[in-house]
Amino acid sequence: MLAIVSRAENQVEIVFGTDAYYGKEISVDEMRFRRFMSIACGLACMGAMVTGDLFDFTLFVSLVGICNVGIVAAVKTKHVQNAAFQYGIVALTATVPLFGGAAITAATTGTLSMIALGTALAGPVPFIAQAALVLGVMGEGMAPFYAAKAEMFRAPGAPYVIMCSFSSLLIFLRVVEVVLTI
């Protein structure tokens, strides 16, 4: 109840040293768009968590990346736009090691199924493919660089921005599990 009444999505900035404060208005349209992006991001996260195929996993991870960009890109603040752009190009670059890792795995072992890779039947997955997968997920989710991601969190609209950090945490956990399995 308190959360509904207080309208947590509206950001209030207080001018330091005085009593003045000003709130930031957010249009319904913007909220609706960001809600759509968060739902898509949640579904992509779910897909990345449950999939048993390496290439599907990389595709879901890049979907999470672009949804994260979408959640913050709708904000009109210049600073946030700038951060979203920088984050977006990192996410786009991260698809290179992601797809590269999956392709190297397929070429050296002849399969993409994580279950088949987990058994001893398929040959060992080369170290470079595992490293590429981890680096790709780090780029998509910005996993260790939360300091830079905090710039994005200055975007108003509390409930949806949480989805960014939550999803990147989830996919990072999942890639660790994948790399330990294969």
Binding site: N82, A83, Q86, Y87, I89, V90, T93, A94, V96, P97, P126, F127, I128, A131, A132, L135, G139, M142, F145, A147, A148, A150, E151
Partner: peptide, 26 residues
Amino acid sequence: FLSDFDNLMPVFAGACALLFVLGILL
């Protein structure tokens, strides 16, 4: 250095370049 988001891209691209160099060595 890392908290400035302008530096994110060089850091990540450098990491990728290092990984690819490692790939050539292995």
